[in-house]
């Protein structure tokens, strides 16, 4: 079982779009996949039409694996299950801060799922917090969507610094470009610059695509309604690239 996290400190860069599409494509490829919506906003749950859970279980999330199992919901697609978001995820930090070895808890609980799933996908909220620390420990690979602007470049550097300071291995961070608009000079030059000096930068670019935007209307992964569109193709390519890397881990 491998754990893949979609993460960025910055909001609105395409973490959720990526989590949803990558989880779907993994399941299509036969991986028994579990998507965990760690963002209390519940965006990825929304795309799969799964309601955020109302029961008060946030407190227990890191306690036992049995508790976790009860939250699992089948998606409409074969091999793909979902743990929907929960409002109380917002208070994770508070919950985690009073637990010993908090940063390892998520990792340990997820371990219990290894018989049932081949791949766990974590859709993370845009914060740098105890929760994200727990995610960094639990993940085998962290993919970071980066919109090619100067600002995004800087936030990406921030993330690397954080890893450095906390003794986390930067080698599991894989950035990729998201919402790329080629016709914009700024995008073009940022891409060229970063392609030269960014380690582990993935080859696939996700273009800005109205089909990806429409996922909210359709409430389903882009491949379900526009597999052949530029956006659909790009995510398919991104999944191929990531799955090759996952296999080597």
């Amino acid at each position: 079982m491998k754990t893949l996290a979609c993460y960025s400190i910055k909001g609105g860069v395409g973490k959720t779009a990526s989590s949803v599409n990558l989880a779907y494509l993994a399941a299509q490829a036969g991986y028994r996949t579990l998507l965990i919506d760690l963002d209390s906003q519940g965006a990825s749950s929304f795309y799969f039409r799964v309601r955020p859970s109302k029961k008060n279980w946030g407190k227990r999330f890191f306690k036992t694996y049995e508790q976790l199992l009860k939250q699992i919901k089948a998606s409409d697609f074969e091999h793909l299950d979902i743990i929907p978001a929960h409002e109380s995820f917002r208070h994770f930090d508070a919950l985690l801060s009073d637990q010993g070895k908090r940063e390892l808890r998520l990792k340990r609980v997820l371990k219990g799922l290894k018989k049932e799933y081949d791949l766990i996908v974590l859709d993370c909220p845009p914060t740098l917090s105890y929760l994200s620390e727990a995610v960094f420990h639990a993940a085998n690979m962290i993919v970071v969507p980066v919109i090619p602007t100067t600002l995004s470049e800087r936030t990406y550097e921030q993330l690397q610094d954080f890893f450095g300071k906390h003794g986390l291995p930067t080698k599991m961070i894989y950035p990729f470009f998201s919402m790329v608009q080629r016709q914009k000079q700024l995008h073009k030059s940022t891409i060229e610059r970063m392609q030269d000096d960014t380690p582990r930068l993935l080859d696939t670019l996700i273009p800005f695509s109205t089909d990806i935007e429409k996922m909210g209307e359709h409430r389903s992964p882009v491949s379900c309604f526009a597999a052949r569109s530029a956006g659909g193709q790009a995510y398919e390519e991104l999944w191929q690239e990531i799955s090759r890397k996952l296999k080597k881990l």
Binding site: F48, R49, V50, R51, A74, D76, R219
Partner: peptide
């Protein structure tokens, strides 16, 4: 058939 709820979730 897919039996779906109000959200059209199966």
């Amino acid at each position: 058939y897919a039996v779906r709820n109000k959200d059209l979730k199966k």
